[in-house]
Design a protein around this nucleic acid. Sequence first.
DNA 1: CCGTATACCTAGCTGTGCTAGGTATGGCAA
DNA 2: TTGCCATACCTAGCACAGCTAGGTATACGG
Lengths: 113, 113
Amino acid sequence: MAGPKNPPFLNGVPELLVLQCLRERPMYGYELVQAIRAATGEHVVLAEGVVYPVLHMLEREGALSTERQTVNGRSRIYYALTEQGGTRLADLADTWRQLTTVIAGVLGEPRHA
Amino acid sequence: MAGPKNPPFLNGVPELLVLQCLRERPMYGYELVQAIRAATGEHVVLAEGVVYPVLHMLEREGALSTERQTVNGRSRIYYALTEQGGTRLADLADTWRQLTTVIAGVLGEPRHA
DNA sequence: CCGTATACCTAGCTGTGCTAGGTATGGCAA
DNA sequence: TTGCCATACCTAGCACAGCTAGGTATACGG
C-alpha cells in the first residue's frame, strides 16, 4: 500500500522512457517495466498498468511494431521501434530537453536582473 | 485558436513556477500570468484559468498568504510565500531536479554498458 | 500441490491542466 | 458617448494521463 509513489509531474514521461528504452533493443512489456526501473535507479517505477496501455497506444499509432515469440512455453510480445517511432522519440526528447532547460533557468536565476 | 500549445507533460509545473516566482516578490494573479510567460521566454504560457485555481489551492493549504489592495480603482489580491510555502517550493524544486537529472541520464546514455 | 515469478491485460478512479466562458472597472479612441 | 481593449478577478466542466486494483494463465521450485 505505502509504496514510494512517483513524483506527481511526469506527464508524457512514461512514453518517453518506453521509446528511449526500445531504441536500445526490442523488448517485451514485462521486461520494459524492469528496464525502466533499473535505468532510472528506482527513481521512476512504472507499474504494468501504466506501461501496457502506453505500448498499445504507441503500436496503434505506428510508433512500434510487434512480434510474438514463445520462450519456455511463455508467450512474449516484443515491441520494436519503427522509423516513425524514432522520429517520435526524437521530437519528444527534444521538447523535454527544451522544457527542462527553461525551467532550470527559472529555478536557477538567483535574483532580479 | 491555433495557439502554440504547451508541451503535454508539465504536471505540477504550474505550481512550481508560481511558487518560484513568488519567492522573488509578492504578486497578484494577473501579474503572475505574465511573469511566468516572460520568465520562460514564452515557452510556458499558463492561462488565467490555470493560475488562479493553483493560487487558491496553495492558499487553502497554507503555502501562500493574501493581501487585498486597490490600485487605480482596481482590486488586486497579492499573494506572498509563507514559510510553509518556502518549504514546499524547496521540496518541489528538489524533486524536479532529481527527476530531470535521472531522465537526462537515461536519455543521454549513448549505448549499452 | 501450492506459492511465487513470469507475462499478459483492462476497468475505472482521480487529479491536473485546459477551454471557454462570465463579471466588472478604467482608459483611450472614434 | 460609445465602444473596445486592457486590467483583474473568477468558475464550470471537459479531456486525458497515470495510477490502483484487480483478473487470466503458465512455469518452476519447495
